[in-house]
Amino acid sequence: MKTVLTYGTFDLFHAGHIRLLKRARSLGDRLIVGCSTDEFNALKGKQSVFSYEDRALIVGACKFVDLVIPESSWQQKSDDIRKYDVDIFTIGDDWIGKFDHLSEETGCAVTYLTRTPDISTTDVKSAIQQLCDEKKRSILGAVDHLRQCVDRL
């Protein structure tokens, strides 16, 4: 039985996450996902919309995932690989070269998966912000119009 391990924040779960997890799962028989805790995200300068508990629940509900574990530090990867007898460590190709040392330290294969083009949590957050900004401008325009109407009375 081949065990695959990957990590991520998985905030605002989207199609790119599903595709990554599906491809990761196709590399073996069991997929373990390390989901970044809120405290670890704070150390990385990130803030998630959803709490760790909610993100772990969402990721765990994905049919490709067999186990979700908390990711609380950069250093835990080697320990997790040994603890869960991992054969393949995989992560998105935006991390190419950053985890090659895990192969030497633990003997597991390290694979970088191509990201899904045109989708990322950052893009989703930007789109939401743009919609909020447009709505805010619209409301401010309506308030200004009402103010002008009141002034004419």
Rank of each mutant, 00 (worst) to 15 (best):
F40L: 02
Y84R: 08
S73R: 09
L31H: 03
F40M: 02
F13D: 00
E39W: 01
C149W: 05
P117Q: 08
I69M: 06
R25P: 09
I128P: 03
K83R: 15
E105Y: 06
C35Q: 02
D151I: 08
K98C: 08
C132Q: 14
K2R: 15
L31S: 04
G141S: 14
V150A: 07
L20Q: 14
I96P: 01
Q75G: 06
G16F: 00
L153P: 00
V33H: 03
P70S: 09
T121M: 09
D151Y: 06
V33Y: 01
P117R: 14
I128G: 09
R25W: 03
A56H: 01
Y52I: 00
H17I: 04
E71P: 02
D79Y: 09
T3S: 12
V110K: 02
D118K: 12
L57H: 05
L12V: 08
V110N: 02
C108Q: 02
F89Y: 14
I18V: 15
A109V: 10
G107S: 09
D38C: 05
K22E: 10
D123G: 10
G8Q: 06
F50D: 05
F89I: 01
G45Q: 09
S138C: 13
K83N: 11
T37H: 01
C108I: 02
L153Q: 12
L102M: 08
E104W: 07
T111K: 14
A127D: 12
R30T: 10
I18M: 08
Q148W: 03
I69S: 04
G92C: 07
N41T: 00
K22W: 00
T116M: 14
H145W: 11
K22N: 06
Y52H: 03
T90F: 04
D79E: 15
D85A: 12
I128N: 05
R82G: 12
D80P: 03
L21R: 01
Q76V: 01
T37N: 05
L102Y: 05
D118W: 12
D38W: 02
D94W: 07
L153Y: 12
G8S: 04
V4W: 06
F99N: 14
D118L: 14
T37D: 03
A127G: 10
R25M: 01
E105S: 11
D123H: 05
N41P: 02
I69K: 13
T122Y: 10
R55Y: 00
V110G: 02
T3V: 12
K135Y: 11
F64G: 00
S48R: 07
D79H: 12
R147C: 07
A142K: 15
H101N: 12
D93G: 13
G97N: 10
C35M: 03
S72T: 10
F10H: 08
A142P: 00
D133F: 07
L57C: 06
T116N: 07
Y7F: 15
I128Q: 02
T111E: 15
F50M: 14
S48Y: 05
K44L: 15
F89A: 04
Y84I: 06
V65I: 01
K136M: 12
K63P: 00
I58L: 04
D85Q: 13
I96S: 11
T116L: 13
D29E: 10
G107P: 10
T116E: 13
K98Y: 08
I81C: 03
T121I: 06
